[in-house]
Write a protein that binds this DNA or RNA. Structure first.
Length: 293
DNA sequence: CTCCAGGTTCCGG
DNA sequence: CCGGAACATGGA
């Protein structure tokens, strides 16, 4: 596909940066973030309110747009991925996940949009979460012009707290609308201070997150992992639970949630969150491709 | 049409 | 502490 001269002229100047041990696609398609769109040979999205287009060619990232300078931090290119991979347990399941997902990085998301999207995630497929996120952005977010198109920032807590529950339901949230509204209110009022969580240890930060309606242990761990860089946080969802039971608790009866929790916290170690994300993405990408008949 | 999805909350053993 | 049930919506 060649690009027309007019379209090419719309492009903003770009830059090239080195990104070793990084796989953009695995990172953006692994279900940790929900607003990036595949455009051309790369991905288009916002980092906060700054638009950027990112394309990977080998170990180089071609970036263009106001968000370009934020790319290294956002995609956590400074995480010691070699050491992280080396920290994974050496069992077969973990090995397979590593081979599948090598280069996947846990990114540094803005806290609120991470918390908010995961509040909407309960009992929803990744495709649905993406739809709800897009709907809320388009309807309530600040528009951002970029290369002849328009993107929308994720609406702030203040903005969302002023929205009606009906309007949120129209974005497809269902019963989650009330939770998101309540969470936005608690944060907009200052009763819960997301920025202040950075000073707390993991357990205290998790407890604080769980004060938000619609945030339980799983969503709190997602937020800790994807927005607060707590790389030990290990979210247990239906996929991971299936993997755990089939892999580490084969033919054991009565494995309670508490038992699973305890196992994960000790077995996967200091970068447990990374291990979890690799297992999650591997399970999803192999289960979905199966049986095209 | 039926099944199920990155859960949380509330309620009775 | 543990298992169940309700809660909404849409893609496969």
């Amino acid at each position: 596909m060649t690009m027309g001269a007019r379209e090419a002229a719309r492009r903003t100047p770009g830059a090239i940066l080195e990104a070793a041990e990084f796989d953009l696609r695995q990172t953006l398609e692994s279900g940790q973030v929900f607003h990036w769109e595949e455009v051309g040979a790369g991905y288009l999205g916002l980092i906060g309110r700054k638009p950027v287009h990112v394309e990977q060619r080998g170990s180089a990232l071609w970036v263009r747009g106001p968000g370009a300078e934020l790319v290294p931090d956002y995609f956590a290119l400074d995480h010691p991925l070699g050491a992280i991979h080396a920290s994974f347990p050496a069992d077969p399941a973990m090995r397979a996940a590593l081979e599948c997902c090598r280069g996947l990085r846990i990114i540094r998301q803005p806290a609120w949009e991470c918390v908010a999207t995961f509040i909407t995630s309960s009992m929803k497929q990744v495709a649905h979460i993406r739809q709800m996120s897009a709907a809320m952005r388009e309807r309530f977010g600040e528009p951002v012009e970029f290369e002849g198109g328009r993107l929308f920032a994720f609406p702030t807590p203040a903005r969302l707290s002023a929205v009606s529950e009906v309007a949120l339901r129209e974005c497809g949230l269902g019963y989650r609308a009330k939770n998101l509204l309540g969470a936005a209110l608690l944060i907009a009022s200052g009763e819960v201070d997301l920025a202040a969580l950075r000073a707390l240890d993991d357990d205290a930060a998790r407890a604080e997150l769980c004060r938000l309606p619609g945030v339980g242990p799983k969503v709190a761990n997602c937020a800790l992992l994807f927005a607060f860089e707590r790389l030990r946080a290990f979210p247990i969802d239906v996929w991971i639970e299936r993997v755990l039971r089939e892999t580490y608790f084969k033919r054991k009866r009565k494995v309670t949630a508490a038992r699973l929790r305890k196992f994960c916290d000790s077995y996967f170690g200091e970068f447990g969150g990374y291990a979890q994300q690799y297992l999650f993405h591997h399970a999803r990408s192999t289960r979905r491709k199966k049986a095209p008949k």
